[in-house]
Design a protein around this nucleic acid. Structure first.
Lengths: 220, 220, 220, 220
DNA sequence: GATGAATGAGGATTCATTCAT
DNA sequence: TATGAATGAATCCTCATTCAT
């Protein structure tokens, strides 16, 4: 990939815009039909660009997909890094993280699914997919460790496994909500997740605003 | 589908056997390569049957896949229905259900993933996939309701949402374990899941064999 | 090349015939348009076979070309091996070899040219091309050596170089005749070639039938 | 061809230089890859000129090739016209012509081959190719005629055919040497060619410097 | 004039399905 | 029924040429 195409960094502003249009169009097509079923002609058609021009900006279908996936990873990473303001109570931190994750997933669920579909046969995407997930789980892991140190979370749990499962719980819920149209009251989902998470690690759960604990703990 | 082929119920014993061989071969190929990447020639090759004979038993590639999926659904349904013996303590029932689910998923994870891959564009498989999942969630729902009635589980939780999330938690864990090779001690996984589940619904969690409650409750 | 196509040895008689038809059609198209300009559709069209069926017999355009070239090489090798009957006088042997070569080249000139065209970028064909030529030159070399031993040909010539040049002379003449339509009386060409060849290696040249020497020498 | 582009005669000095650069770059690319495989982008890349500018100087890929071929023809024509100094002995003239031809061919062999490759489907190049060759053969023809008139060469040979074959012999040798890497001692090649040529037309052959004849004859 | 992006026809190959034996 | 060859639509990618800056 790369050759003499602009693949990567087009010099002109106009080129950059056009490339962006293609990436967006590609993302939408991939979301609607999956990677294999998406035709170059559909992408260029949606972008309002000539067929051949696709290859001015990308060397192959794989390459646009890489680009799309890169963007998604960026968005998800940003979401994973966002933390509640200092001084927030532990349970509220959990609630905050859950809301954040669900919001990020809502916008990216479809394309994440396509990335996952592709991943079994494309190690690169498999890795990317696991990295996105890993970042979330790591946040939960370190947050939980801190709560243990502060004596707020149970000391006898396997933090890694617990974090993996709690993260998975929220992720799976996001999938059911945004990919399979399972219907739940969003508020209830957040509260249920927060309760299961908090109680699961031994925190006293209280509904939003209760501030049932001091402001000491941190989820991430 | 159907035409004048035997698609469905071949009359002779020999035909039935051949059909079964094809379904098994198809399942293996689908697991290894996904639906799109699997070629009819690979299926017949693996089954040791002539290329053209495939169409004696099935009208299309879609049809074998239906057949494969039907089998998987059956296995998963059986697993979902299995319950701990009467008199088992609630936490042990949860543990039992978790173990059962993980075991069933281990054997079917790859093909389940393919079914899921196909589901966005094939309503039939989407439905099937949701039914399999729904059955598990329903078991959890009714089990939890019973525990509430017995005063063992928290009364203030949204049972449907909670069941969906707990089921999702275990399912997601199974995916990570069996599809993405995440490594966890199986015992720890089961115990962590059981703890999160039990505590989440307000049960007192105790390690296996503790029998921390009377034998009254039922998870399913 | 080879995969699961019949590439090489089709089992049924009917298949073999069809394959042969394709090879012949391909040869004709290659002769008319060269390798690059020949389209699969032209080959199948000429053969009266469906487009896709081409790939039942060959894995690629390259492969038919290999097949065609193999046939040509066989014909040329046969021509190179043919020798005048024992007892033929040296000059008559030269005349015989020249006639034989020209006849063989006449039938294969066009396709030989295509093989040559392709050879710069396809080592396989380059080798094949050089082997065909090499065989002719070797025959001349050994024939000339024998004549030297018998004291009929000059002893002071570099046999290898001489053979290469005499062979090239006849080959080049064949090219001009059959590829570029240069017009010469065939009889005159053969006589001129024979004279230049004979005199060049120091033989006494006499017109056909003269039998100017005893029956001792051998060109090959 | 022609339109309103400068195709042909760019007015400014700078334009002429640029055009020349392109022709040279084109020649090198054609030599390395052949006509079909050469891309406009490769030519402009090598020339260090913008892609689009190619069409400022030429109307098409064919046109640069014409230009390249024209240059080659010029060089070859010059070589063909060069003759040994007056007073050189016939055999030395032959030797001289052979050396000249080989030297000219060495520098142009690759591009000549490309011209030949293209010629079957481009009458223009076919003609050009035949003209280059024709010029050499004509020189040989007239030289031989003169030797016949002087009683030095056999009177009973068909001069046209003989000239064609002798020219072809040297040309073919050049091809083997410069295109196919056949290895021969250059001195031996020249001597062998000279001997075959001289003896073939009935001249007494003597090694270089021998000056076996008076200085009367002329090869061209 | 110079530049390099835009255009779209063209072509090799794949493969589910059909069909003749 | 069994077999495997036949079919041809479908798709990705290439690249000479055109054209807007």
């Amino acid at each position: 990939m790369g050759k003499q195409t602009l693949a990567g960094r087009p010099p002109t502003e106009r080129g950059r815009r056009k490339r962006g249009t293609l990436v967006q169009a590609a993302r939408e097509e991939f979301e609607e039909r999956g990677f294999e079923e998406t035709r170059i002609a559909q992408i260029t058609g949606r972008a309002g660009i000539a067929y051949g021009s696709f290859y001015t900006y990308f060397d192959s279908k794989d390459e646009v997909f890489h680009e799309v996936a890169k963007g998604v990873a960026g968005e998800m990473f940003d979401a994973a890094r966002s933390a509640a303001p200092p001084g927030t109570a532990p349970v509220d931190r959990i609630r905050y993280a859950t809301e954040r994750f669900l919001a990020a997933y809502r916008d990216n669920a479809r394309i994440m699914q396509v990335i996952e579909q592709v991943s079994p046969r494309h190690p690169h995407f498999r890795t990317l997919f696991l990295e996105i997930r890993g970042l979330f789980v790591d946040r939960i892991t370190s947050g939980t460790r801190r709560l243990q140190e502060e004596g707020l979370a149970s000391a006898d749990i396997d933090v890694e496994t617990t974090a993996s499962m709690l993260g998975g719980m929220v992720e799976h819920t996001a999938r059911m909500l945004f990919l399979y149209g399972e219907e739940h009251d969003p508020e209830v989902v957040v509260e249920t997740a927060t309760r299961l998470w908090a109680r699961g690690i031994g925190l006293e759960y209280g509904p939003p605003g209760t501030g049932s604990q001091g402001a000491a703990g941190q989820v991430d």
